[in-house]
Amino acid sequence: MISDSANRIFEAAIKDYHVHDEIDFPIQNPYPPERIEHLLYLKCWIDTMQWHMEDEIRDPNINSDEALKWKRRIDKSNQDRTDTVEYIDSYFLDKYKDITPKADATVNTESPAWAIDRLSILALKIYHMRLETLRDDADPEHKEACQVKLDVLIEQQKDLSESIDELLKNIEEGKKIMKVYKQMKMYNDPNLNPVLYSSKQ
């Protein structure tokens, strides 16, 4: 099941990142570039870096120059994240390219890779919420509240994992159509963002 593999890889990537817990520490992806596992590890590493960038930009004492620096890094990270999701979908497009959908096959609300994207974020939420339940400086009420949230996140991870596996099974059986729309982000494109193309005039 792809979800079992993805969840294990996401957990490993998050654990590996927190060995050093530095946003700029270089990734050491243990999987060869041609394997789907490489993309899954990369995806979660990007998400983990960005999680901590989002923490930095929310510092109430941050100055405007520092905030702008983090905002631009987050924008770049978002683009890297989107690109990686599309690479993952390309893997599935190639894997299922010879599947002929049934006459009554339908399109899913999201592609497999975008569902896997949510699974990666869930792994991060679970990791950090679990830390909150273990904080020595937190009161019992905080820990209990976080444990309730953690239980919900774990249930959500289970449900989403099962849904992803079912989607891929349905694609293999021709019940769902493997269809992907590329993300058409406009704000980074100098030809589509009016602020950027106006500045060139």
Rank of each mutant, 00 (worst) to 15 (best):
T84K: 00
D65A: 10
L196K: 09
E110R: 14
N188T: 05
N193L: 06
L167S: 02
R130S: 14
Y41P: 05
D24E: 15
S198R: 11
Y127E: 15
D165T: 03
R58G: 07
L196M: 15
D136E: 06
Y91T: 00
K102Y: 12
I57V: 15
L196N: 04
A138L: 07
R130M: 06
K97Y: 09
Q50K: 05
G174W: 02
P112R: 02
D189G: 02
E37H: 07
Y181F: 02
V180Q: 01
I9G: 08
L160N: 02
T106R: 13
D137C: 03
L119T: 03
I74A: 14
D159Q: 13
L39C: 08
R81M: 10
Y181D: 01
L93A: 10
D16K: 13
D16H: 14
P101M: 07
R72Q: 14
T82V: 08
I27E: 15
S163N: 05
K71R: 11
K149L: 08
Y96H: 00
R8T: 12
A105Y: 11
S64L: 10
Q201G: 14
M1P: 10
D117P: 02
S90L: 03
K102M: 10
N193G: 09
D98G: 05
I36Y: 00
S161D: 03
R72D: 13
L167R: 02
K43A: 04
V195N: 05
I27D: 12
T84G: 01
H52E: 14
V148S: 15
R58F: 11
L160D: 05
R73P: 14
L39E: 09
D189R: 00
K158S: 03
D139Q: 08
V107H: 10
M178F: 00
E66L: 11
N63E: 14
R72S: 10
E173Q: 06
H52K: 08
K102H: 13
P60F: 01
I126D: 11
M186G: 09
Y17I: 04
R8E: 12
C146M: 15
Y127V: 13
S111Q: 07
R130V: 03
D75C: 11
Q201Y: 14
P194N: 04
R72T: 10
L196D: 04
D83C: 03
P32H: 04
L40D: 05
N108F: 04
N61R: 09
K43Y: 04
A105G: 12
D94M: 06
A12T: 13
D98E: 11
P26G: 03
L119P: 06
A138Y: 08
K97A: 09
D24F: 10
I88N: 00
D98V: 08
Q50I: 07
D55K: 12
S120V: 02
Y87D: 11
D151H: 11
I23V: 15
E22K: 15
E34R: 09
Q147G: 13
T100Y: 04
P101E: 08
S198T: 10
A12L: 15
N63L: 08
V195F: 00
